[in-house]
Design a protein around this nucleic acid. Structure first.
Lengths: 264, 264
DNA sequence: TTAATAGTGTCTTTAAGACACTATCAG
DNA sequence: CTGATAGTGTCTTAAAGACACTATTAA
């Protein structure tokens, strides 16, 4: 990167390289009532005034991208400790912002349901939307529709590869809560007995560090509609060696893209 | 993203958002003699004059990031058709370029061994390095060491999830070639009989589209040291539903990070 | 009691590891 | 022939799916 005066493309002025604004945008996902939700803010000014958009803002020269993401998260939503926050893509199509050249770096944040949004937030202009609605019915500002879709795809992939599922639930949780995270993101049903076995039995022989979930000895309250109160678990240390649940591969799953193959 | 004048952080001037240069850098991986290699260019001008660096250059306002990556790839290396080219990260730490604020978007390119580099390239200033050497012994310009490491980690992950392995080999290939891609990137030995079974037996029941590899009926020449000439295969269409080879998880694999968890 | 949710036990299927064996080449 | 690489067959183990069954709550 970044070497003016080194093997210069023909006819391209090296002394004056083009200038961009750089922003970070954050896709904040959580589970509410068994369904995946995303936090959106309503835009005040032009362009796209009044439309819903992902929270985000300009990167400053003296901070890293991660710091910018964390700062914007706090400033726009009051959230200070998402359980997961990681970059997942950069977007720089010409004209994606009508005013100027903007490249944005998109982040995926995952948190247990925070209930209401914290201080420092204009609550009227920020709310969680069911992801299904946001994707299908809402017209989002800029290229945020695509960014949101990419984020959800990424989250679904990461469920299978990391401990991302545990970022959706609290420090202690019932297995059925965790299961609903997988079922919602994968749009697939999982047998509760097999799910429990996968999570509670020790990770494949070779791995050392603990289990996937550890019993706390406590139980949650029974649901308002009755039913046995579930045991509460804590996330264990075994996720890094080998995540416990594999995604069902259905035949019609063909259209899921994994990453950039060459389209020509 | 990208909204000057919308919910402005206190004390931050919204009318003049900071300006950045945006570059793309490309990690070009290939297999040579059974070992993973990366293409590096030697820098002409300051800063880091004379040091090895990843090929790359400035994004133009009228092109997408993908187009910029493809253009730089062609301009700096003569490569026009890598089998894989995809973004994998953005890097924007303050001071990563001593001259000005630069955010770079990093791409992973994978190609079968092109032999010599094509026209349009200053061959003296561009060569493939064994990745092991580049990572351990070479001091790279900017933060390119980290970018290279991240690219290799990403490639190793993607082997398990996509058809990336086939991007390292030609249109027809021996299974042993493909196997060496996995073994090199995972630093693990794979039983050739089991590897063959995984690739040549049909993908899990539910999947429809073809096989992982299709026989061409042809055979390669035997190696100079003798041995039976291998069958040549073509990549099939089954990779997208469920990749054929799972990565061995060793106990000491714990240190492999999967993505940004929260470090606090 | 019934409806609802949580949790156990077990049989079967399938993927993966181990490894002995055969096949075909160069020299 | 030997050494080297390619390819087949089979036994065993481990993970995952299916599903019948028991347990504990609210109303």
């Amino acid at each position: 990167m970044t070497r003016p005066g080194h093997r210069v493309p023909d006819g391209y002025d090296t002394s004056a390289y083009p200038s961009f604004a750089v922003t970070v945008d954050i896709v904040i996902l959580t589970m509410r009532g068994g369904h995946l939700h995303v936090l959106l803010v309503q835009r005040g000014g032009e362009p796209y005034a009044g439309m819903w958009a992902l929270p985000g803002g300009f990167k400053r020269p003296d901070e890293t991208l991660d710091q910018a993401a964390r700062r914007e998260l706090r400033e726009e939503t009051g959230l200070v400790a998402p359980k997961h926050l990681a970059q997942f893509g950069a977007y720089g199509d010409p004209g994606r912002d009508p005013r100027t050249n903007v490249v944005t770096v998109a982040y995926l944040a995952v948190t247990p349901d925070p209930g209401s949004l914290h201080a420092g937030t204009d609550a009227a202009a920020a709310r969680f939307w069911p992801v299904v609605d946001a994707v299908r019915e809402l017209s989002l500002a800029f290229d945020h529709h695509r960014i949101l879709s990419d984020a959800v795809d990424r989250a679904a992939e990461q469920l299978e590869q990391t401990d991302l599922a545990t970022a959706f639930v609290g420090d202690t949780f019932a297995l059925s809560e965790l299961q609903s995270v997988y079922e919602e993101l994968w749009q697939a049903e999982i047998d509760p007995a097999n799910f429990r076995r996968s999570l509670t039995s020790p990770p494949p022989s070779t791995a050392a560090p603990g289990a996937y979930v550890e019993p706390t000895g406590k139980r949650a309250k029974a649901s308002p509609r009755g039913g046995r109160p579930p045991e509460l678990f804590r996330a264990g240390g075994a996720w890094r060696t080998q995540p416990p649940v594999r995604r069902p591969r259905t035949p019609r799953d063909q259209d899921r893209r994994t990453g950039g193959d060459i389209p020509e």
